[in-house]
Design a protein around this nucleic acid. Structure first.
Length: 421
RNA sequence: GUGAGUGUAGCCCAGAGGCCUAAGGCGCCAGGUUGUGGCCCUGGAUAUCGAGGGUUCAAAUCCCUCCACUCACCCCA
């Protein structure tokens, strides 16, 4: 028997109300903040990600779905959205538009990982990017937008963490200080941290190993090593967030796993956490566009996982509006009545009424049972009697009563009644 | 990639070597007289007991291998 590939899921009809709800809030918030939609390909040239996300990151090192296509090109199913958006910005000359350019996307992303709660090999990300300005007001807007997005979904009890990890001027100095500090504790570090110290010192800070906590807690802080412009940028950002009344906590141990981040990084998480707690994150990437071959262009963005949003909606018991179902079910008894059913269904649908007609010559009882199971309010019943007298029965399943209506007016009275309900 | 747990019908699950030609609940289908749903009652269908091998007179039950799923780590949405 075939199963959905590991780490992928089918989104069944019963789940769709959550997806429509989230999609609608996405369209809404983007419209409010002036972000326009961009759709990027599901796969890209493999080199795009090693150059942007970073050669040494887990995503590039062990999680990419990369393969050669029939023409010998090396391609990768996109593991994130930012690189593609930046590629599109450069490719289509979007620097000719008034800056910053504001774009959002909603797309599948793919990472070859061991699945677990809140983690999949294919999942969906909503992300948005503002390209072409280093104004901290833009950082504030991006963060505010994320915060308002989650609020519009009715989330409460979310935490916003913020940090600044500097730029290419000041980061090297900080990394050196961090390494010096950690060098004193090499024998006390967990195995993973020993590797991090050599390969990716920033990641030392978010180690979850208990024995490493006190060491990480009193490690040098990136904000103490910021150059003047970065320090100024970070303090302006915090001031703006204060104006916006966005509650945030500076977390000195917040670093993010993608190499392209500079200056501002931030994350949103639910208060009560399970294994995978982060529901969204983002930051500034002032060197990325240039690194991909564009002109030096400061930018920043945010991304969030739809599956994690939905799982948190459920955890917090947040109700979503139900999808609209059919309004009318047409049941029949006899062949003449079946012909009439087919005609009536068509007439009602053309008039904009959602109709399910009975299919398969079942007993009237079975047909009405189906209408009931589907939760359809109105049932039209057509039988030999009705054909003879030129009428149909219109039954209100909720009120459990019914009436007889004429059909010689080309079903106008049926239509009028249903629309009036 | 590492570690732990679990695999019995569409779903939840009973079952601990022979009484299992596998129980129950939900759901599904059909009936409860003449053309009418929801509650109730009755009946029915659906399980190569994850796969393969082994032990045994006898295996869903014990052993081994594999596979899948779940959870956690790494990392991330």
């Amino acid at each position: 028997m075939y199963q959905a590939p590991r780490g992928t899921t089918d989104i069944l009809p019963q789940e769709q109300a959550y997806w429509r709800y989230v999609e609608q809030k996405i369209a809404n918030i983007c419209q409010l903040y002036g972000y326009e939609r961009i759709d990027v390909p599901a796969f890209e040239d493999a080199g795009l990600f090693s150059r942007s996300v970073g050669e040494g990151t887990d995503i590039v090192e062990k999680e990419m779905y990369t393969f050669e296509d029939r023409g010998g090109s090396k391609v990768t199913l996109i593991p994130e959205g930012t690189a593609s958006v930046c590629r599109a910005y450069i490719e289509h000359g979007l620097h000719n538009l008034p800056q910053p350019v504001k774009l959002y996307y909603l797309t599948s992303v793919f990472r070859y990982e061991r699945p677990q709660a809140g983690r999949f090999r294919q999942h969906h990300q909503f992300g948005y990017e503002a390209i072409g300005s280093d104004d901290p007001a833009l950082d504030a807007e991006i963060i505010d937008m994320a915060w308002q997005f989650f609020r519009s979904l009715n989330f409460h009890h979310l935490l916003l963490s913020l940090n600044s990890i500097g730029c290419k001027t000041c980061r090297p100095g900080y990394l050196a200080a961090l390494k010096d500090y950690y060098a004193k504790y090499t024998d006390k570090l967990c195995a993973d941290c020993k590797i991090r110290l050599a390969r990716n010192p920033l990641r030392l800070l978010d180690c979850k190993e208990r024995s490493c906590q006190p060491i990480a807690d009193s490690a040098p802080r990136s904000i103490d090593y910021l150059c003047q412009p970065c320090a100024e940028h970070f303090s302006q950002l915090q001031r703006y967030l204060g104006l916006l009344e966005i509650p945030f906590a500076v977390n000195h141990r917040l670093v993010r796993g993608l190499d392209y981040y500079t200056r501002t990084v931030f994350e949103v998480q639910p208060e009560v956490e399970g294994g995978q707690s982060t529901i969204g994150g983002g930051g500034r990437y002032d060197n990325l566009i240039e690194g991909l071959g564009g002109k030096p262009t400061p930018a920043l963005g945010f991304a969030t996982g739809i599956e994690r949003i939905i799982s948190n909606l459920k955890k917090q018991n947040i109700a979503v509006p139900p999808l609209l179902g059919p309004q009318v079910f047409i049941a029949y008894a006899g062949n003449d009545a079946k012909d009439e059913t087919i005609k009536l269904a068509s007439i009602l649908r053309r008039a904009g009424i959602a109709v399910i007609e009975a299919i398969g010559n079942k007993s009237l009882k079975a047909q009405l049972r189906q209408a009931n199971t589907l939760g359809i309010r109105h049932a039209v019943i057509i039988g030999d009697q009705e054909i003879k007298t030129g009428t149909v029965i219109l039954r209100d399943m909720t009120a459990a009563n019914q009436m007889t209506l004429p059909t010689n007016d080309n079903y106008a009275s049926i239509y009028t009644y249903i629309v009036s309900q």
